[in-house]
Amino acid sequence: MLITIPLGLILVITVADILAPTSVHLSPLLVAAPTITASFAGPRLTVAIGLLTAVDQVLLGVRNDILGTRELYMQIIAVAVVTAFVAGSSFLRNRQRQALIQVRSVSEAAQQVLLRPLPERIGPLRLSSVYLAAEQEAQIGGDLYGAARVACGTRLIIGDARGKGLNSISEAALLLGAFREASRRHISLPGLTADLEESVSSELLQSTGTEHDAEESFVTAAVLEIPDDSPVISVINCGHPPPMVLRDGQVTTLHAGRPAPPLGLGGLYEPEYDVEMFKFEAGDILLLYTDGVIEARDPAGTFYPLAERIARWADDRSETLLQHLHADLLAHVGGHLGDDAAMIAIERLDSDTPPNGPA
């Protein structure tokens, strides 16, 4: 245990002082014991070691015949002052640690509410997701994703709120809530996207106060629909990085012919939400991601080559693919991202695959 370090130090200094000539006093070195204790222990244990140190100094003072002298008084005062200072620092450190634990708990709870865990299986799809917040100790940021089951199949959204701090989290929560509500109304994909645009634009205008400020905040998003009975994907891309499909070891980027503007800017551009359709057959894996992935840089400033890295794990299932990408992305940036990043891997299963899927 770490407590043996200051106790051992007190013992060593005491023995050395006894063995040293009477003209040599090593007891002033005992002040190191409470200092070391405060580096790993709380204020109570630090004070206890400080008291033990003071008692030991008195005993050594008796042995060295300096009891009642100014020298011994100064040694005891020095231990008292140092102990009080480091014990106070330990108290503040413990309070900050408790506050940090509470922040983590709140952050985790907020993540569960805002970014509900995606089901592992929804219809003929197997889903896996990963979220990496750039802010240290945070669990959520401005990136978002969600899935909704509808009569015709499955709808998904992935997006990135371009606001900062709490505003971006608020915008992400607003968009996800609007997506879940609008999806239940079974409106068309363009109608769903238009509804999301209206919700985001209205909220941004209310929160920022002016149209000019609202222009500085917007949400890039890709809204998708995957029918159960057709091997296709319908996509409306609102200024978001294009999805990728992994098929037979090849990576295909699903570029939109006419992308719509980001959500929140529709009032300026009067967008038309054109639906792009792409092939999505059994065995294919669809990867949705935010720009925090493709804009991640290594120490040399090189962007993360997502399409190239995906091909390395062409034979993996969606969950394993994301595990590899997660580890590889963090290795690329040296362990810390400069922006939030989110990824979803969706694998279309054979129609006869049981609900639990293959092992």
Rank of each mutant, 00 (worst) to 15 (best):
I122V: 14
D160P: 07
T14N: 01
V150M: 09
I140M: 06
R317Y: 03
F303K: 06
S170Y: 13
A314Y: 01
E319C: 03
L286T: 08
V58H: 03
A221K: 02
T320Y: 01
G264S: 11
I236P: 07
R312D: 11
E281T: 13
I36W: 14
T253V: 12
S107Q: 15
I236Q: 07
A359S: 15
H25E: 12
G267F: 10
A194G: 15
G146Y: 01
V47E: 12
S199P: 00
N237M: 05
T320K: 04
P117G: 01
I77L: 13
T69C: 07
Y73F: 15
A182R: 04
F303A: 01
A296Y: 10
A311C: 03
P305T: 05
A182G: 04
G191S: 08
L166K: 00
S234M: 10
S129N: 10
E216S: 11
H255R: 12
A221N: 07
A99W: 14
E120K: 03
K164R: 13
Q102F: 03
D160Y: 13
L51P: 09
A38H: 00
S105F: 08
Y273C: 03
T290C: 09
A147R: 02
D248G: 04
S199F: 05
V15L: 14
L52Q: 09
D316A: 11
P117C: 02
L132A: 02
R184M: 11
M244I: 11
S202N: 10
G191Q: 08
P242D: 08
E203Q: 14
A148Q: 15
D195K: 06
R185G: 01
R317V: 02
L72M: 11
L59W: 15
T83S: 11
I233M: 12
A300F: 15
T69P: 11
A341G: 04
G249Y: 06
L72H: 14
D274H: 09
T353V: 07
V150F: 12
L286W: 08
A182F: 13
V251M: 06
I66M: 14
G267V: 03
L52P: 04
G292E: 00
V15G: 09
Q57T: 09
L192K: 01
A173D: 02
A311R: 15
Q96Y: 13
I346C: 07
L287M: 05
R180K: 05
A33M: 05
I344W: 08
P190N: 05
A134R: 03
S39C: 10
P34K: 02
